[in-house]
């Protein structure tokens, strides 16, 4: 193997190797996690967060506007406090409503933000007061069955 062909082969190898990395980065992965250059923190308290995870998406009108940064348990109020990293380009009114939804029947859980009509905006480190907890499937199912059973008893004379 003489020197110039060797260089050619090494060059070829490095080029397709870097090409593969680029392919993985651009075509396979998404930059969503990194793309947020500037962000600010919003807090929200929930009675029950269900299966919400750190790094889960925060969406408004279906568009990802941030990520869940931290989840902690407030031992005084027995509530979950969720910290969200919101893209600095977006601001939300003070009376924004935060709910925990599930994508699909068994999919990941995410936080949905529904803006209210107030003029005043939420500042960084602000807290969202109007929240709705996750819908826990087991609860819903048992409630449904319980109601059905109750209905059955009423109709019987």
């Amino acid at each position: 193997m003489n020197r110039t062909t060797l260089d050619l082969w090494v060059g070829f190898f490095v080029a397709i190797g870097i090409g593969a990395l680029l392919f993985l980065a651009l075509k396979v992965g998404s930059f969503a996690g990194v793309q947020m250059d500037e962000s600010y923190i919003l807090k929200a308290r929930f009675d029950n967060i269900g299966g919400l995870k750190v790094r889960g998406p925060v969406k408004s009108a279906g568009v990802v506007v941030g990520r869940v940064a931290e989840i902690r348990f407030d031992a005084a109020a027995y509530e979950a406090e969720v910290l969200m990293k919101i893209d600095a380009r977006y601001v939300f009114p003070k009376d924004t409503f935060a709910s925990i939804y599930t994508s699909g029947l068994l999919g990941d859980q995410y936080i949905g933000l529904e803006p209210g009509g107030e003029e005043e905006k939420l500042a960084a480190d602000g807290t969202i007061f109007k929240t709705q907890s996750a819908v826990v499937l087991e609860k819903m199912v048992s409630q449904f069955l319980f109601n059905k059973a109750a209905e059955g008893q009423e109709t019987q004379p």
Partner: peptide, 19 residues
């Protein structure tokens, strides 16, 4: 196939950790 893949594969978390 591709959009589901892109939605759930994170560059830093999955790709860089693999590298």
């Amino acid at each position: 196939f591709w959009s589901q893949m892109q939605a759930s594969v994170d560059f830093r978390y999955d790709i860089l950790n693999g590298v």
